[in-house]
Write a protein that binds this DNA or RNA. Structure first.
Lengths: 228, 228
DNA sequence: AATGGACCAATCATCCTACAACTTTCATAG
DNA sequence: CTATGAAAGTTGTAGGATGATTGGTCCATT
């Protein structure tokens, strides 16, 4: 039996173990991980090896160290961090166009693939939007609105699409809040939600796509008006 | 002058310097970087500090170390590495649906924004496809075909969209080659290229979107036929 | 009791030395 | 000329020492 160079370096092994611990929620986000001395024993490696492992996860955005205090878990997903960092440096309107691309396709796929259960969830989400709008609770409205759109993408049944969509939303969240919160009149266009919902109910992919286009176009218009 | 907590750790400073060196092509991709001893002097830090900096860049995918040999530059873009790694583990058809989303939006935007110069580039690209098809040169055809589609996205004038599209193409490249290379008859559907080209020429966004849908649907059908 | 300061313990940051493991180079024996 | 193996160069791992920062305790002063 020949052992080729398949031996991972100690640092890489420690990195993978820590990634596992984070991904499997053994170490929760926001909580401190054990101090270096304890981890040295646990993984049975030297301080240098452990620190190099931790450092690479810090740079990846999964961990955060503070001298004198300790090391905390910052996120569970490396791609998310890289993506978010990248999107932060990108033009809002470019991001919005990509979101439009993803959401249109998502709506079209949702129209074809949605289950009855998903449909009723969507109906409930729209109801929540209406209620928040009637109560003039803008903050709640934004949350319920985003939840509705995310549910649509979920109904598309494509995990990659959903993940990328959520990153887009994350990057655009501040703009979304700004637009909804700052418009002098809080006019809720209920028909746009209903249009999309009906299209998905009737499994009309073309109409679903169009209603997303209208929604994004309206949002873009408002956003441009703000940036005077 | 108030210095807040903007004091970066030594390791982070070294990381940023190295990132700069890589990004500005001082250290070319594929080439070895100076050995640790030399870098210790250059950055005036201890070996531990330097190694932690290098390790985090290794984990990010920018560098690659080999014991006994040295450290080489692997890539200039961290997001690209994370993205590619992620897409490798994703279902091909899910990736294809996201590509479809991006390419449809790209085509629609290209129809609205394309310049005359971009239009003539697109025409030339289609000609190249035709020539490769007539010569029965499948490899060249695939290359020219991908080039045409990338030119379309470029004409959309959205850098984020272009970057994400290129990652999708990269992840799908092997499937694209497989489909084109393995079909018993090499039937080139010239009208699909022409349809898209005409739509962009006439600045018809709806038609551009539809022709992309047709193209992707055809490709998906062929790919599914292969995976028996 | 509330405030502020001195002090202390825990923790991470950096540096140092030493050796192990691996790769490359190159002189030398055959 | 080829093959061998010693030597030099490079990264990997270990362990110890000290500095810097943080968070908290305790106590004197108000």
């Amino acid at each position: 039996m020949i052992r080729k160079t398949n031996r991972l370096s100690l640092v890489e092994q420690v990195v993978q173990q820590i990634e596992q611990l984070i991904e499997h929620k053994q170490w929760a986000v926001g909580e401190k991980i054990p101090p270096e001395a304890q981890l040295m024993e646990q993984f049975d490696v030297s301080r240098n090896t452990l620190r190099e492992a931790i450092r690479s996860l810090v740079h990846a955005g999964l961990l955060e160290t503070k001298q004198g205090s300790g090391t905390t878990v910052r996120s569970t997903n490396a791609l998310e961090v890289a993506f978010t960092r990248h999107l932060e440096r990108t033009n809002v309107f470019e991001t919005l166009e990509v979101r439009s691309a993803l959401e249109q396709e998502g709506a079209a796929l949702a129209a074809r693939r949605r289950t009855d259960e998903q449909l009723s969830e969507l109906k409930e989400a729209v109801d929540n939007c209406v209620r928040a709008a009637e109560a003039r609770d803008r903050l709640k409205f934004v949350q319920k609105d985003l939840h509705f759109h995310t549910l649509v993408i979920q109904a598309a049944n494509n995990s990659l699409l959903l993940e990328m969509y959520e990153h887009m939303i994350e990057a655009l969240s501040s703009s979304i809040f700004d637009v909804t919160m700052s418009s002098e009149t809080f006019d809720y266009d209920e028909e746009i939600h209903n249009e999309l919902l009906t299209a998905i109910e009737q499994q009309d992919a073309v109409r679903a796509r169009q209603s997303v286009q209208q929604y994004i176009a309206l949002f873009t218009k408002r956003l441009k008006k703000m940036n005077i």
